[in-house]
Nucleic acid binder design. Structure first.
Lengths: 270, 270
DNA sequence: TCACCATATTGGTCTGGACAAATATTGATG
DNA sequence: CATCAATATTTGTCCAGACCAATATGGTGA
């Protein structure tokens, strides 16, 4: 059996008193958890080594195995240690990555696609990709090659029927989804949503690129702006296990669009 | 006390056998957890209502309170229920958010701040915020008011000493951190990092806004472009428990900057 | 030497019980 | 009717003990 850090000194005042005297502060398993955490931080329990066993710890802290297990369970959930039956409790790291995260219920939420808007499909055509468009659709190292045939939809999103134009959208769909595109004309929500449902392929990843650029002529004309007007361009790719489900390029008038992100530190539970 | 869903039917084969017969499959608390999960999904335990108490469940499943608690703890960790001492176990949702997520080790990673670049501080001055700047710094409903005094740093980030300019940066720092700003001039990394370390305040949230806009004259001049050149403007706010740690506004030449995001679907644990 | 098996170790599951602490309910009181 | 105190309810913490399942170890035999 692998060597094990042995430690018998007691950091916890023994508190001769009855079973659950809280000592005025945190419960016992929390205090023990903190002590163990400190020992890991100070290197007393080296990263990669095995910690004392539950029995040893319960003897050291003069407590039950139950209480030690509660402390160790929290350490495990916080990413400090790994526990394996028959093997023991191994120290993984002294600085568990808390990090930051951003999470969403849906991709609509992520991409801040307003639901209360109206989509008008201008038309669609088959296109053969040139090198630039292929790169735009597939990303820098994507699987999309120049010369492939894709279906291009162009549409405009409005605040309301007869309201203000919000954005111009080009959507590129692989040929294998041709049968599913008939529903695009009547659809108001984002196409990726419709396509994910109808194709039965689950989106596992989404990518987005944001650029500032002047609006090309035919884009500007479609939403009633002059050529070269300032725009925020959002390129999005939706990937399934089988490849790209759909890619879109959105132009927003610069003065009407702000893209917002908010991330929080992952809670570290103590 | 609030009404409580009562349920006495047993879904678990009673397995007369000894204490820990695993029955060939998952441990008992896992099977009970799944049953409870199903009941929530089927609406038998309505969202918003209280589940049966631990005692009731332990009677129904003919098991100990310990086992029920293990099952309920998992349900809580998965976001199905909320538990409060003295109140009970309340059903939160039947569809805990699987959703999408994006996570980072550090905020540098999130904001794609290149490490291999060089920062030159042009200067700093005390400023009294006007309404527009206050809103820019604090956000739409932020705690920052016009008339407050902040410290403004202006700097330029370069590819290399004597290389190409990458971006122009304005950093707004609250007056209470004045003592820590002396180190800004010699610092090459992002200021929020330095400030977080020195001020001992932990960043709990970061916000970012992306706009496309023409470059103001003095910004353009600082990085050698003509006034009105297209730029991608990134406004970032770093928040601690005590308020805003630092806010910055970054201007990037439009043709040199693409902001990329990638998110993955969250793995669903079961 | 290598493969295999018995054995010890160690965390995983579970019982049954006890008291503490937080919350809700009820009843008394003004 | 409103307020406060007493009481009941419910989850939180903790104990002592038991057996199970997974892993590591050491010895045995081919």
């Amino acid at each position: 059996m692998a060597p094990r850090s042995i430690d018998r000194e007691s950091d916890l005042k023994s508190e001769q008193s009855g079973p659950q005297t809280p000592g005025g502060e945190a419960p016992r398993y929390v205090r023990i958890q903190r002590i163990l955490q400190d020992r890991i931080a100070q290197g007393r329990y080296a990263v990669g080594s095995l910690m004392p066993t539950e029995i040893e710890l319960s003897e050291e802290f003069a407590t039950s195995r139950f209480t030690i297990r509660s402390a160790l369970r929290n350490l495990m959930q916080d990413g400090y240690v790994e526990r394996r039956q028959g093997m023991g409790t191994r120290v993984l790291t002294a600085n568990p990555t808390t990090g930051y995260y951003q999470s969403f219920e849906s991709l609509q939420e992520l991409f801040q696609i307003a639901v209360e808007t109206y989509l008008v499909v201008l038309g669609s055509e088959d296109v053969v990709l040139d090198a630039e468009i292929a790169k735009r659709i597939g990303g820098d190292d994507g699987p999309v090659r120049a010369g492939e045939r894709w279906i291009l939809f162009e549409s405009v999103r409005w605040t309301a029927p007869g309201g203000r134009p919000l954005s111009f959208i080009q959507s590129y769909v692989p040929e294998r989804f041709r049968d599913h595109t008939s529903a695009f004309a009547d659809h108001n929500g984002p196409f990726f949503d419709l396509l994910e449902t109808r194709s039965q392929e689950t989106i596992i990843e989404a990518q987005q690129e944001i650029r500032a650029m002047p609006m090309p002529q035919h884009v500007a004309r479609a939403i009633g702006l002059r050529e070269g007007a300032l725009s925020l361009q959002l390129t999005r790719r939706y990937l399934t296990a089988r490849g790209i489900l759909i890619a879109s390029v959105n132009w927003h008038p610069a003065d009407k669009m702000i893209y917002r992100t908010r991330v929080r530190r992952r809670q570290s539970r103590d």
